[in-house]
């Protein structure tokens, strides 16, 4: 199953687009480095619509109270409701890597961005979303 998401120039760095793969709502994200990532858009907590969430740099676990260190190479999708944080590359929640969104393959094909089901990044698999830019 494959779906066209949008034209390539309609998704810039740091932006998201929703897509629908059969019954599955997907959010397609272009990271700041240009790579593309696809995640199931239903929050694992209460089903919040992740395509309406916000992207942030990852706040790194720090050593001292009051120390905030940001990792701009690890972008986080924060649920628009309760704020569960997901690594856009793996779909894993930041607080528990065993809780993981399904990931999808996202490609640039011609002048379009497509997302598809059933290839690397299958349900719950930790690791790269295998996106290509």
């Amino acid at each position: 199953m494959k779906q066209v998401v949008c034209k390539i120039d309609e998704l810039g760095p740091g932006e998201m687009k929703p897509a629908q793969l059969g019954p599955i709502r997907v959010v397609v994200i272009r990271a700041m480095d240009g790579t593309l990532h696809g995640l199931a858009a239903k929050c694992l907590h209460q089903g919040g619509p992740l395509e309406r969430g916000r992207l942030y740099d990852h706040t790194v676990a720090s050593s001292d109270v009051g120390e905030y260190v940001m990792d701009s190479d690890r972008e986080i999708l924060k649920c628009p409701w309760h704020g569960y944080e997901y690594d856009i590359r793996t779909g894993q929640t930041v607080f528990d890597e065993t809780r993981c969104l399904q990931t999808f393959t996202v490609r640039e094909e011609g002048d379009e961005i497509t997302v598809e089901l059933g290839v690397p990044g299958a349900a719950g698999q930790a690791g790269s979303a295998r996106a290509s830019a």
Binding site: A40, R99, L101, G124
Partner: peptide, 12 residues
Amino acid sequence: MTAVRAQPLVSQ
């Protein structure tokens, strides 16, 4: 290896 929990994609 850590176990990965099942995830419902469509609400019942």
